[in-house]
Structure formats: C-alpha cells, structure tokens
C-alpha cells in the first residue's frame, strides 16, 4: 500500500498544488505558461539558464513570499526534474534503492487537465445516475486508485494511491482541516482564488508530507 500523488484544484478548474511520493512514472515538466507559479517545484517549467535573478524563480514563485527570503534559506533554482529539495523543511529521507523513473509522455499541465476532466465527468455521471446530490468518491484501475474530496468552497483534493487502499476521503479531509486551513487559508501571503498563483509554500508542503508519511497506508 502506498500513496502516489496529491492534486488540489480550485473552483476555477486550475491545479493550485501538486505533490508526489513513490511515483515511477513522472509527467514531463509543464510547458511555459501551462501551470500557475507556486504549484510544485518538481513539475514547473525549467527557468532559463542565463537568468541571474534566482529569487524570481525561487521555490514558491510568489514575489510576495517572504517566508524563504527572510529566513536566509537559499532556495535553489529549479533546474533539474529530480533535484532534491534544498530547503531544510523539505528534506525527505532518501530511499536506499533509487527507482528508475519513466515518463508518462504527458506534460504535467496536460496530465492535470486530464485528471480534472475525469473527476468532473465522473462527478456529473454519479449525480445524474443517483438522481440525488450524491458525490463521486473514488475509482480503481488495475494500477491505481483515485480518491476525491470536494469542499463547500469548490476546492477539490485528489489523491492517487495503490489500488488496494481503503477509501482515503478522511485523509483528504484531514489535509483540508489541518495543513490547508493552517498554512493556506490562514496564511496572509497566499493569494487564494487569484488564478495567478498556486498555494504552494514550504510549511504547507512539509506539513502534508509529515501527515502522509505518518499514515498507516504509507509504507
């Protein structure tokens, strides 16, 4: 049992946050302009090499983000796909046997759109079939299981896990109630609903990472 990835979408259908664990098939980095800044370092388009102003491209993209610059933490320029996160909060234990990563052949922005399209269609299908205001909960294929939790404010939390996992709606709810409220909603530096920035920040990412790694379904 394991957890592969987490996507968060806002009510404008855009992906505002992405994080993954143990994924052997990675999407290609998004194309320039394909995703908002501050969604995820790992899949953002590579910055130009000649650029000397690293702070523009520093981890969390937002020019108003003072979290990293004030603490004196040097946030690395995202120039490699598999670069280990260099901020102390985001250091993850390196796995003893590195797995070979293959590509899904899709750019991240394309993949994010496909995921959103699937959950939206399934949500409508379930509503239509039930004739009530019933929510779509999850679907399973031979290789993974997708879980959805939708908040009243239209944020959609999508998690991909291994197919044997139980329903993880409560975990997605915990992410919403815990890290999301604490480090995004109550964070004055995060512009929610802006359509210009994602919601990624160091504390949010580290807090989700801690929570997910502590789950019993996480090996």
């Amino acid at each position: 049992m394991t957890i592969h990835s987490l996507y968060i979408y806002d009510r404008h259908c855009t992906c505002v946050y992405y994080q993954d664990w143990h994924r052997t098939r990675r999407p290609k980095p998004a194309v320039e302009g394909g995703i908002l800044p501050a969604v995820s370092q790992a899949v953002s388009p590579s910055p130009h090499l000649a650029n000397s102003n690293a702070s523009v491209y520093s981890g969390y993209g937002s020019p108003r983000n003072t979290l990293s610059s004030n603490t004196g933490v040097v946030v690395a320029v995202n120039d490699m796909l598999n670069q280990a996160p260099s901020t102390p909060l985001l250091q993850s234990p390196t796995s003893p046997n590195p797995v070979v990563l293959t590509s899904t052949g899709l750019a991240f922005d394309e993949e994010a759109k496909l995921v959103y399209g699937v959950i939206l269609s399934l949500r409508n299908m379930i509503k239509k079939l039930s004739g009530r205001d019933e929510q779509f909960v999850n679907y399973r294929t031979s290789a993974y299981k997708l879980h959805l939790f939708e908040t009243m404010s239209g944020y959609k939390f999508v998690m991909l896990t291994d197919p044997a996992a139980e329903s993880l709606r409560f975990v997605l709810r915990q992410i919403y109630v815990g890290p999301f409220l604490e480090y995004v909603v109550r964070n004055p530096l995060v512009q929610m609903d802006s359509r210009e920035h994602g919601i990624d920040n160091e504390y949010f990412r580290a807090s989700i990472d801690r929570m997910v790694r502590g789950l019993s379904v996480f090996p």
Partner: peptide
C-alpha cells in the same frame, strides 16, 4: 493513461456514496 506506476487498465470500479 493517468497511471502513476507502470501501465494500467481503465477504470474497473467507480464508487459513489451509495
């Protein structure tokens, strides 16, 4: 096509609340 791990079949089970 969305599989995070190797190749995958299409959806086998889709669950709603009831």
């Amino acid at each position: 096509r969305l599989s995070p791990m190797g190749s995958s079949s299409g959806a086998q089970v889709i669950e709603g609340e009831s």
